[in-house]
Design a protein around this nucleic acid. Structure first.
Length: 934
RNA sequence: UGGAGCGUAGCUCAGUGGCAGAGCGCCGCCUUCACACGGCGGAUGUCGUAGGUUCAACCCCUAUCGCUCCAACCA
C-alpha cells in the first residue's frame, strides 16, 4: 500500500519577500519528513556522497566562519541530493577540552568561595563532581549550536548526530590509543613541552601562538675558568635572564676565533656558582649578539635539542606552578616574573650585567587564555608521528587526496615534512581519560581496552585511582571523526557506503590541527584516505578586512543577519564570495542587495500567478505535463519563448558545472544574471506582449513561464533553499518526486523542492535563430531607451521612428517588421516605418546608427529634443566610433598582425573597421544636418 | 629567514592572450498595470611599478614596491 504524500498547504504569497514567515516552517517540514535522511546502503550503481561536518565546539555559538563552511557544505549536499546521490552530511559536536573546561571553571568561580575565601576551583569539587557539572553544562548548551545550524538551513542528517565524547566515539578513541601504544607509536616520556601555567596543562606546538612582544636583551658576563683559574670571560645575551638558573653549558661556534681558546674549558655560572662546560656547535650564529649562547636544556626547545646532542644535564628550575623550583637555589618559590627581576638585580649587583638593550622578540601564548606558555620538561604522552606522517604525505603527493585551492598542498607538505612528535596528554579533566594504569608496586604501565583489575606484571590489584589522570588532546578524537562517527571499530554498513567521505570542507587555519591528523589516522586505521578532496575556504573578516573579534566589536553575528534578512540572502552572499582566496570581507550591505534578489524572484513568481490566474481565464496544466507539452511544439514556439527555454537550461547546466568545479561564486553569479537580468528584465517584459495576444500564444507563454520559473527555482535551491521552496510550493501542478532509494527504504513521498531532480539542462537547447532575433529586439529597444535617456525625454513622450535598411540588414528589418506592435508598445513609439536603401533623412531627423546591423534609425527631432543635447550625444557616439576605427586600423596596418594572427580574427577586425566607417559616415551627415538647423 | 596570497571603477570583488566587468555607491529621468527590496539611462579605470616574451599582455616570464597570511627563528 503506497504511502500518502506528505505535503504543506499551498502558501499565499505575501506582498514581498518576508523570510521570517516561512523559514522555520519549511525547515521543520523537511526535517520531520525525513528529507535529510541518508541510507546505509546505496542502490547498486548509485553514487554516495558524504561529508562530515567540522564539529563545532559543543557549547559554542554560531559565528560567520561556521555560517560560511556550513553554507558551502549545504549547497554541495543539496545539489548532490537533487542529483540522486545517496547523500550523508553528518552532524556533530566536539567536546573542546580546554575551552569547555574553562567555561565551567569560570561558572563555578562565580558561584562561590572556597575554604580560604578565594573563588571555587575545580579542585574544590573534585574530579567526579566537576565532570558531572561539565556534562550538565554540555547538556544545557548542546542544543544551541545545532539549532543555529538549522536556522541556516543545513540539511544535516540529525539521526546520525555524534559527539566526540559519546559512547561510540569514546570506544573508538580507546581502540586507537591502545593500538597505537601496542604498535609503539604512542609512548610516554620526559620531554620538553609547552606548558600553560594558568590552564595547568601541556599544550601541543600548535596550541601556542607566537606573539610579538617588546622585550629586552640582557647581556651577562660569564667567567671562563680552567680548573680554578680564571682565563677570560664571555658576554652572553638573553631575553629570559631567569632561565640562567638552569644553564648547563655555554656554546660557541667551532670556527669562531674569538672563542677558540675556551674550547673544552668551563664557565662559571653567575649567581649559582656551578661550573658548566663550554661546548662548540655550528648551530650557534656567530653574527648574532656576542656569538656566544647560554644553554638551558630544560626550558628552551633549541637548547633541549643541543642538550640531548651534547648529553648535558637537564635542570628544571621553572615549575608547573609558575614558580621557581628548589633547583633555583635562593630564587625558589618566586614567581617567574619576580625571579626575573631579582636575577637581574643580583646580576647587576654582582657587576656582571654588561648592558640591557631593547629587543623585539616573540613569546608563545596559550591559544586559549593568552598566558605566556613556558617550555619545560615534563612527563607526557606522545604520538611518534613520522611513521604516520609519511603515508599521509604520500597520499597527497600521489593525488589520492587533492587540496583546493591547490596551493595549500605546499603548506601541508612544508609542515608534514618538519613535523615533531605530537604531545597528546593534557592535564585537564574534561576529555578522554588516557586508558593507562600505573602499578603502584612494580611501576608497570598497563594500557588496555578494558579496565584492568590487577597488574598483569606483578598481580597487584588496580582500580580507578591507579589510572593515569591525564586526558587526551581534543584533536586526538577529532582526528578519528570521519570513521569514528560511522561506527568504527565495528565494520558497519555505513562505513562501507560512506567512507572515504567525498569532500572535506573546512578553514585553512586547521589544516595542521585537524586535516593532517585525520589523513594520518584515516590511512593508518582504515587503510584508506578519509576524504578525496579537501576544499579550503577563506577567512571571514569584517568589511575592513579585519578579523572579527568580540574585543574589537566588529563581529557580524550570522543569527542577527538571518533575523533581519533571512538565511537565503546570507547564504547567497557567502556563496558568491566563496571563491575568494584568503579573506572574505563581509558587509551587511551585500547581504541586503542579495535580499533584494530574493525579493525580485518573489515578485516574478507573483507576476506568474497573476497571469496564470487572470480572472475569467484560469489555465490548467496540460495532462502530459508542461515540459512534454512544450517539447512537442519546440520548433514552433514563439522565438522569445524558445530563447528563454534555452537560456534557463544553459544556466542550469552552467550551475551544475560550476558546482562540480567548486566554483560556488560562479554558480551564484550565473543564477543572479539569469534570474534578474534575463528572466525578470527581459523575458517578463516580452511575455507581457505575448500574453496580451491571448489564445494559443498566451497558453504557450504561460507554460513557458511556468517551466522557466520552476527550472530556475530548482537550480537556485541549493544556494537559497527556503525562498525557492516557498515559491515552488505555490506553483500549480507540482508533484512529489520519489527517488528509488527512498522508495526502497519505505520513505513516504514528500512534496518538496529539495527532493526534486536537479535540472539536467537537457530539455531545451539554445536556438541560435531565436537568440539572434531576441538580440535584435533587445538592441532596438535599448537604442530607443538610450535616445530617451540621453536626451532626458520622458518615457511618456511619444514619437515615431523610421528604419533605413541598407544591404545586409535583411534579418534586422524582418524582425522589426514582424514584431512591430510589441516593439512599439515596449518603447512607446507611435510608428516604426521601414524605408528602402535610397531613402534620405529629413532635415530635422536625428540619427541612431546601428551599424553592426547595417541600419540607421531616424527620429524627427522637431518639438522633441534640444538640438544642442542631441549634438552632444552624436559627438560622443562619433568619438567612440573614431576610436574604434583607429583601433582596428592600427591593428590591420601592422603586417605582422595580418601575417600571424588567426584568419578569423583578421576578418573580425576588418568587419569592425567596416562597421566603424559606416557609423562615422552616418554620424557625419547627421551632425551636418544639425549644424544647418541652428 | 622560508613559503603562500593579494595589489583591476569611490568601495567590495569577478575576469580572459585579441578594444576592461558586476554589485554597492554616485548623477539624471520615472511612483507605467510583479517588484521603489523597483524601472530606464549615464559617468568613472595609463588593470601597483619597470622591463621582457608575443602579431597582440590586465592575463605569460623577470625584477621591483606595497599589503596580508602561514611556518621557522637570533639566544
Amino acid at each position: 500500500m503506497p504511502k500518502e504524500t506528505r505535503q504543506l498547504p499551498t502558501p499565499n504569497l505575501e506582498k514581498s519577500f518576508e523570510p521570517q514567515t516561512f523559514e522555520g516552517k519549511l525547515y521543520a517540514f523537511w526535517n520531520e519528513n525525513g528529507c535529510f535522511d541518508s541510507y546505509d546502503e546505496s542502490l547498486p550503481g548509485q553514487k554516495s556522497f558524504s561529508m562530515v561536518i567540522p564539529p563545532p565546539n559543543v557549547t559554542g555559538v554560531l559565528h560567520m566562519g561556521h555560517a560560511l563552511t556550513n553554507t558551502i557544505q549545504d549547497i554541495l549536499v543539496r545539489w548532490q541530493r537533487m542529483k540522486g546521490a545517496n547523500t550523508l552530511w553528518l552532524p556533530g559536536t566536539d567536546h573542546a577540552g580546554i575551552a569547555t573546561q574553562t567555561q565551567v571553571e569560570k561558572a563555578i568561580a562565580k558561584e562561590g568561595k572556597g575554604p580560604t575565601g578565594r573563588p571555587l576551583t575545580r579542585h574544590d569539587l573534585g574530579r567526579e563532581k566537576f565532570l558531572e557539572r561539565t556534562w550538565k553544562w554540555k547538556e544545557d548548551h548542546a542544543g544551541q549550536i545545532s539549532n543555529q545550524l538549522k536556522r541556516l538551513g543545513s540539511s544535516l542528517d540529525w539521526k546520525r548526530e555524534r559527539f566526540t565524547m559519546d559512547e561510540g566515539l569514546s570506544k573508538a578513541v580507546r581502540e586507537v590509543f591502545v593500538r597505537l601504544y601496542k604498535e609503539g607509536l604512542i609512548y610516554r616520556g620526559e620531554r620538553i613541552i609547552n606548558w600553560c601555567p594558568r590552564c595547568q596543562t601541556a599544550l601541543s606546538d600548535l596550541e601556542v601562538i607566537p606573539t610579538d612582544r617588546k622585550g629586552k636583551l640582557w647581556n651577562i658576563r660569564y667567567e671562563i675558568v680552567d680548573g680554578e683559574q680564571v682565563i677570560g670571560s664571555v658576554v652572553i645575551a638573553t631575553t629570559r635572564p631567569e632561565t640562567m638558573l638552569g644553564d648547563t653549558a655555554i656554546a660557541v661556534h667551532p670556527e669562531d676565533e674569538r672563542y677558540t681558546a675556551f674550547h673544552g674549558k668551563e664557565a662559571r655560572l653567575p649567581l649559582m656558582g656551578r661550573k658548566i662546560p663550554v661546548i662548540v656547535d655550528a648551530y650557534v650564529d656567530r653574527e648574532f649578539g656576542t656569538g656566544a649562547l647560554k644553554i638551558t636544556p630544560a626550558h628552551d626547545f633549541n637548547d633541549y635539542d643541543l642538550g640531548v646532542k651534547h648529553k648535558l644535564p637537564f635542570i628544571s628550575v621553572m615549575g608547573k606552578d609558575g614558580k621557581i623550583t628548589s633547583e633555583g637555589g635562593a630564587y625558589a618559590d618566586l614567581k617567574f616574573a619576580e625571579a626575573r627581576d631579582k636575577v637581574v638585580a643580583d646580576l647587576e649587583a654582582a657587576g656582571v650585567l654588561v648592558k640591557v638593550e631593547d629587543h623585539a622578540n616573540k613569546v608563545g601564548l596559550c591559544q586559549r587564555c593568552e598566558t605566556v606558555a613556558e617550555p619545560l620538561l615534563s612527563k607526557q604522552w606522545f604520538v611518534k608521528i613520522q611513521p604516520l606522517a609519511d603515508p599521509a604525505i604520500d597520499a597527497v603527493k600521489t593525488g589520492k587526496i587533492e587540496f583546493r585551492p591547490k596551493a595549500w598542498e605546499k603548506t601541508y607538505f612544508e609542515w608534514m615534512n618538519n613535523i615533531r612528535d605530537w604531545c597528546i596528554s593534557r592535564q585537564l579533566w574534561w576529555g578522554h581519560q588516557i586508558p593507562a594504569w600505573h602499578c603502584p608496586k612494580c611501576e608497570h604501565i598497563e594500557v588496555a581496552l578494558h579496565d584492568p583489575s590487577k597488574c598483569p606484571s606483578c598481580g597487584t590489584s588496580l582500580d580507578a585511582s591507579n589510572r593515569d589522570e591525564d586526558v587526551l588532546d581534543t584533536w586526538f578524537s577529532s582526528a578519528l571523526w570521519p570513521f569514528s562517527t560511522m561506527g568504527w571499530p565495528e565494520q558497519t554498513q555505513a562505513l562501507k557506503t560512506f567512507y572515504p567521505t567525498s569532500i572535506l570542507e573546512t578553514g585553512f587555519d586547521i589544516i595542521f590541527f585537524w586535516v593532517a591528523r585525520m589523513i594520518m589516522m584515516g590511512i593508518h586505521f582504515m587503510g584508506k584516505v578519509p576524504f578525496e578532496r579537501v576544499y579550503l575556504h577563506a577567512m571571514v573578516r569584517d568589511e575592513k578586512g579585519e578579523k572579527m573579534s568580540k574585543s574589537k566589536g566588529n563581529v557580524i553575528d550570522p543569527l542577527t543577519v538571518i533575523d533581519q534578512h533571512g538565511a537565503d540572502p546570507l547564504r547567497f552572499t557567502l556563496a558568491s564570495m566563496a571563491g575568494q582566496g584568503r579573506d572574505i570581507k563581509l558587509s551587511v550591505d551585500r547581504v541586503e542587495s542579495d535580499r533584494a534578489f530574493a525579493n525580485k524572484i518573489w515578485n516574478a513568481t507573483k507576476y506568474f500567478h497573476l497571469q496564470w490566474n487572470e480572472e475569467g481565464s484560469a489555465v490548467t496544466m496540460p495532462k502530459e505535463g508542461v515540459t512534454e507539452w512544450l517539447k512537442s511544439r519546440e520548433k514552433k514556439l514563439h522565438p522569445i519563448n524558445r530563447w528563454i527555454l534555452g537560456e534557463v537550461n544553459a544556466t542550469a547546466r552552467e550551475v551544475d558545472r560550476a558546482l562540480e568545479a567548486f566554483e560556488l561564486n560562479e554558480a551564484a553569479n550565473r543564477l543572479y544574471q539569469f534570474g534578474w537580468l534575463e528572466f525578470c528584465d527581459w523575458y517578463i517584459e516580452f511575455s507581457k506582449q505575448n500574453l496580451r495576444k491571448g489564445g494559443e500564444l498566451r497558453l504557450e507563454t504561460l507554460y513557458t513561464l511556468r517551466y522557466s520559473l520552476e527550472t530556475f527555482l530548482k537550480a537556485l535551491h541549493p544556494i537559497m533553499p527556503f525562498v525557492t521552496e516557498e515559491l515552488w510550493q505555490s506553483l500549480p501542478g507540482i508533484s512529489a518526486h520519489q527517488f528509488p532509494l527512498r522508495e526502497k527504504n519505505g520513505a513516504p513521498p514528500v512534496l518538496t523542492l529539495m527532493l526534486q531532480e536537479f535540472p539536467k539542462g537537457e530539455d531545451f537547447s539554445l536556438s541560435e535563430k531565436s537568440a539572434a532575433q531576441v538580440r535584435i529586439q533587445k538592441r532596438f529597444i535599448e537604442a530607443i531607451r538610450n535616445f530617451r535617456g540621453e536626451n532626458q525625454l520622458s518615457p511618456k513622450k511619444e514619437f515615431a521612428v523610421r528604419v533605413k535598411a541598407k544591404s545586409g540588414s535583411e534579418e534586422f528589418v524582418e524582425v522589426v517588421r514582424s514584431n512591430d506592435s510589441d516593439l512599439k508598445s515596449m518603447t512607446r513609439l507611435t510608428s516604426i516605418e521601414v524605408l528602402g536603401a535610397l531613402a534620405a533623412p529629413g532635415d530635422t531627423d536625428a540619427l541612431i546608427a546601428l551599424s553592426e546591423f547595417s541600419v540607421d534609425l531616424w527620429i524627427d527631432l522637431k518639438g522633441l529634443v534640444d538640438v544642442e543635447e542631441e549634438r552632444k550625444r552624436l559627438e560622443k557616439e562619433m568619438a567612440k566610433a573614431e576610436s574604434d576605427l583607429n583601433h582596428s586600423r592600427g591593428k590591420l596596418a601592422k603586417p605582422s598582425f595580418v601575417e600571424k594572427a588567426p584568419p578569423e580574427l583578421i576578418e573580425k577586425e576588418r568587419a569592425a573597421e567596416r562597421v566603424a566607417l559606416e557609423k562615422i559616415e552616418s554620424l557625419k551627415k547627421a551632425v551636418e544636418r544639425l549644424q544647418a538647423l541652428k
